[in-house]
Design a protein around this nucleic acid. Structure first.
Length: 219
DNA sequence: ACATTAATTGTGT
DNA sequence: ACACAATTAATGT
């Protein structure tokens, strides 16, 4: 983990990603208080059971949020993209200060860590912040329902396709650099099953398989 | 360039 | 689901 002094170029990034919906005074406070954190691909940002004193706002890059049970079984919940934060996390945090979820960087990303107290503080102080949080809450909930739908109603092969397309969109590339094992973990399935389904997709000509890499055609 | 090894992927039961 | 085979990438000689 790298902690940086906030300098001009980064201030610009913060402004670029937040000033559209947050008022100026708030941005100034954010710049003063927030701590920058650079994370690399697959770096664990927040683990289940972590004591949360800080909540990240994703400035650039993307983060995946998943649930994990005591056996280490995972399930992907939703993604957070640049400019967004996870208001759900904020709630968990206020209530019990121990994380129920796990957050992992999907690509090299720049995070802005904000202490929980500040987040609460700003709720009453800034209207734009309330709206930002509320909006974020809404987005998360919508995405969460989408994954619930997927789990409940879609067959695994459809879910896998959706997963691949989502990843491609999010990372802005038709190449997905994951092992079958990692995908299986995200979808809470087993490696063999994923391998077989992927093979089927390859036979149908929708994707190309390589080691550690999947190339999407047009699905 | 070749051999060895570890990790990832493929397949039959 | 498990076990094993096959393939690939990485590393040393």
């Amino acid at each position: 983990m790298t902690r940086l002094e906030i300098e001009e170029s980064t201030i610009q990034i913060i402004k670029d990603s937040l000033s559209y919906f947050l008022e100026k005074e708030l941005i100034d406070e954010i710049i003063k208080i927030g701590q920058l954190k650079n994370v690399s691909t697959d770096e664990l940002i927040l683990n289940v059971g972590d004591n949360m004193k800080m909540i990240p706002i994703v400035l650039t890059g993307s983060v995946k949020v998943s649930r994990e049970n005591e056996n280490g079984d995972e399930l992907l919940l939703y993604y957070i993209e640049g400019g967004d934060t996870c208001a759900m996390t904020l709630q968990c945090c206020v209530r019990q200060s121990v994380s129920e979820i796990k957050a992992t960087a999907m690509e090299p990303s720049l995070l802005l860590m904000i202490p929980v107290e500040m987040m609460e503080n700003w709720m009453s102080k800034y209207k734009s912040w309330r709206e930002y949080i509320l909006q974020s809450y809404h987005t998360r909930l919508t995405e969460l329902m989408e994954t619930v739908d997927a789990i409940a109603f879609m067959r695994l092969d459809e879910r896998l396709k959706k997963y691949l397309v989502d990843q491609a969109k999010l990372l802005g590339s038709l190449e997905i650099n994951h092992t079958h094992q990692q995908i299986a973990e995200d979808l809470h399935s087993s490696r063999v099953v994923i391998s077989r389904l992927l093979k089927q997709l390859e036979i149908k000509g929708e994707i190309k398989l390589h080691r550690n890499k999947i190339i999407l055609g047009s699905i």
